[in-house]
Design a protein around this nucleic acid. Structure first.
Length: 674
DNA sequence: TTAGGGTTAG
């Protein structure tokens, strides 16, 4: 048998040398003499399926190696990788030795399937056949081990390679990047530039750019862009895609867009890079607009495009846009894609329609843990804690195992609904389901306990945490101290929070509000000075409202809208109506130490009130108003909105930074718990 | 005549 003849030609020291470098190749074989045939010796009969390539082979009595190689290449081209491996076994059994044309294809098949066990054996064959210095073949070995996550083995192969070309360097570099080690990938690129005469080609530059995107280093990415220009590769379409992605992901969407616009007829992957870049950087409107443009140009979106566009719609919070994309998905071939459908559930939940989210959920035949978790999270956002819990039990009954995300959904649903008892119960049940609580779970429970007034219990719970409490934990305690007017504990929590995020003005505002409620004006002034000294800034609050599918945004005290006079008249009217029905403004919601009248004025100028007024003048009676706010709703606006919903007989749905508030007949679905 | 890369991540 040829394989045995081959083995006898090689010495044992050779085997020992390689076995210390690549133990995985040898651990399954009791004797080096057996290992080359090991994966195949049990294959008694080769089942040649009905492929034409095989039939042709069968017709030849004694096929030459070149015939086998032709067959392998044809099968590889058709991506019939299992059959490629079967032909390889046939080659060995027919007494042939694979050559330099056979092996790269076999490695590719092992990588694609994936078949690590088979791949290790093929690597052993490569060594035995004396191809250890064949760069072309060894590059394939590097890629194979990288794809299997065996990056250190891949690196050993790379180290032993005497002649490395640009593909060898790119293979090991991208291997590191793909295995989550972008810094190592960049180190390899630097070594290549400094220690070798190799000039990077466009694929090498794409790989290094990807690594810089992963570490978020725009400056270094720009340097690589300089190299691209230096090598005259700026028109290379694949580099344009990666450069667009670099600028988009690093927040430079305008630069990204100018690169995108250079291409007359962008291919799908470039559309995806730009749309997802917009969606990820808070430019949701542009993402949706670009997606519509793409559809109008008859470019067929794939699952990635749809997920990015759906994410953008979820961020916009526009139900009209959400319905539009859902209709688009329903008419596309991706209507049964479970990933796309889960994104739709998430989007509907975030756009304020838990009913539509549930409809999509019910239509998914095979629900995995993420589908269930998305729906549980949706109920939670909407304050429907009991529904979330009942869905959780349904999920368990369906034999789907919950994961840590499921419990974040469940606990935050309990939190939004104030279900303290249930929250506690499910937190301690997590381990029974094989899920170890992470920091986020602890933060959720602290928030739940503290909001409900169990401040001491929350504090004790924090002290017992097995990890260092982060800002979310102390922030939750601080917020609860504001709600319950706990000055001392609030002061302590604020100190912890300031130590972690001294630049975040929101925390200073919280402490200041605690002092203001207690009438400690000197302390209020002190916090304000501290805030200024540390250069803390607060995000400008704004609210958006969708009218006839078009979003209109307003800042606090905004007078820039062309219909500003009418809006002002409506806010005044609302204020009059509120006063007439006995509404007392919550002065604590104002940080500034203003006089009572100025305070009132400042409160009714909050952005959501202006958006509401605009909605009222633009829509017929009875229309539901849908408002999105970038910050949390303040106590005053929340109370006023409840009453306004009754006074003007409208349903008002407000999505704040945290959750939904559905105001109807003087009540809110959150039950004043947020 | 066969290798390496880029879009996402519910």
């Amino acid at each position: 048998m040829a394989s045995r003849a081959l083995l006898s030609r090689h010495s044992l020291p050779f085997f020992r040398f390689y076995s210390c470098y690549f133990p995985a190749l040898f651990h399954f074989t009791p004797s080096p003499l057996r290992y080359i045939v090991y994966p195949f010796h049990r294959v008694q009969r080769i089942h040649l399926y009905c492929s034409l390539a095989h039939q042709q082979l069968d017709e030849i009595a004694q096929p030459e190696l070149s015939c086998f190689n032709n067959t392998i290449h044809r099968l590889s081209h058709r991506r019939s990788f299992s059959e490629v491996l079967l032909v390889y076994v046939t080659i060995l059994r027919n007494g042939h030795l694979p050559n330099g044309l056979t092996l790269p294809c076999i490695l590719k098949a092992c990588t694609a399937l994936p078949a690590l066990f088979f791949g290790c054996a093929v690597h052993a064959h490569i060594i035995r056949l004396g191809f250890e210095a064949a760069t072309f073949i060894q590059n394939g070995v590097i890629v194979m081990y990288s794809r299997f996550g065996e990056i250190s083995t891949a690196h050993k192969v790379f180290d032993l390679l005497s002649l490395r070309n640009v593909v060898s360097w790119t293979s090991i570099m991208s291997g590191y990047a793909q295995n989550g080690f972008p810094l190592e990938a960049l180190h390899i690129f630097r070594t290549m530039r400094l220690d070798s005469p190799i000039i990077p080609d466009f694929i090498a530059l794409v790989s290094v750019l990807k690594a810089y995107i992963d570490v978020g280093d725009l400056d270094q990415g720009r340097c690589v862009h300089g190299l691209v220009v230096k090598f005259g590769l700026e028109d290379e379409p694949d580099l344009l895609i990666t450069l667009t992605s670099l600028y988009a992901k690093c927040g430079q969407v305008n630069t990204a867009r100018s690169m995108f616009d250079q291409v007359f007829s962008p291919e799908l992957i470039l559309w995806n890079a730009m749309i997802s870049g917009y969606a990820k950087n808070g430019h949701a409107d542009e993402a949706v607009e670009l997606f519509k443009k793409m559809v109008a140009r008859k470019v067929r979106p794939d699952s990635i495009t749809l997920r990015s566009a759906i994410l953008a719609c979820a961020q916009v919070g526009s139900l009209e846009a959400a319905k539009w994309i859902w209709e688009f998905v329903s008419n596309s071939e991706l209507k049964d894609d479970v990933f796309v459908n889960t994104a739709i559930i998430d989007m509907y939940a975030k756009c304020g329609s838990v009913v539509l989210a549930r409809r999509v959920f019910d239509n998914i035949p095979q629900k995995d843990v993420v589908v269930w978790s998305a729906m549980i999270m949706g109920y939670g956002l909407y304050g429907q804690g009991k529904e979330a819990i009942s869905l959780f039990h349904e999920m368990i009954q369906s034999q789907v195992r919950p994961n840590d995300i499921t419990f974040i959904g469940l606990l935050s649903a309990c939190k939004h609904a104030g279900l303290v008892h249930d929250g506690r119960k499910y937190f301690y049940l997590m381990r029974n389901h094989g899920v170890e609580p992470r920091h986020q779970h602890y933060a959720c429970l602290v928030d739940l306990l503290a909001r409900a007034g169990h401040l001491e219990e929350a504090y004790e719970f924090i002290k017992g945490m097995p990890m260092a409490p982060e800002v979310t934990v102390w922030g939750a305690l601080l917020n609860a101290c504001r709600i319950h007017g706990q000055v001392e504990l609030g002061k302590y929590a604020a100190e912890r929070v300031f130590a972690i995020e001294p630049w975040n003005a929101g925390h200073y505002v919280q402490l200041s509000n605690i002092y203001a409620s207690a009438g400690l004006w000197k302390d209020v002034a002190r916090v304000r000075v501290l805030m200024r000294e540390r250069g803390a800034t607060k995000a400008m609050g704004f609210s958006s409202i969708e009218i006839n599918g078009k979003l209109q945004s307003f800042y606090a005290g905004d007078k820039s809208h062309p219909r500003s006079k009418e809006i002002l008249a409506m806010t005044d009217e609302l204020e009059r109506k509120l006063k007439k029905s006995g509404f007392l403004p919550h002065m604590d919601s104002v940080l500034h130490d203003l006089g009572p009248e100025e305070k009132e004025l400042s409160l009714c100028n909050h952005s959501e009130r202006i958006a509401m007024a605009y909605g009222l003048i633009c829509t017929p009676p009875g229309t539901t108003l849908r408002i999105t706010k970038n910050l949390r709703a303040c106590v005053n606006c929340h109370s006023a909105s409840k009453l306004i919903s009754k006074l003007v007989e409208r349903e008002i749905i407000v999505r704040d930074a945290n959750r939904f508030h559905h105001f109807k007949d003087g009540f809110c679905t959150c039950g004043d718990y947020w």
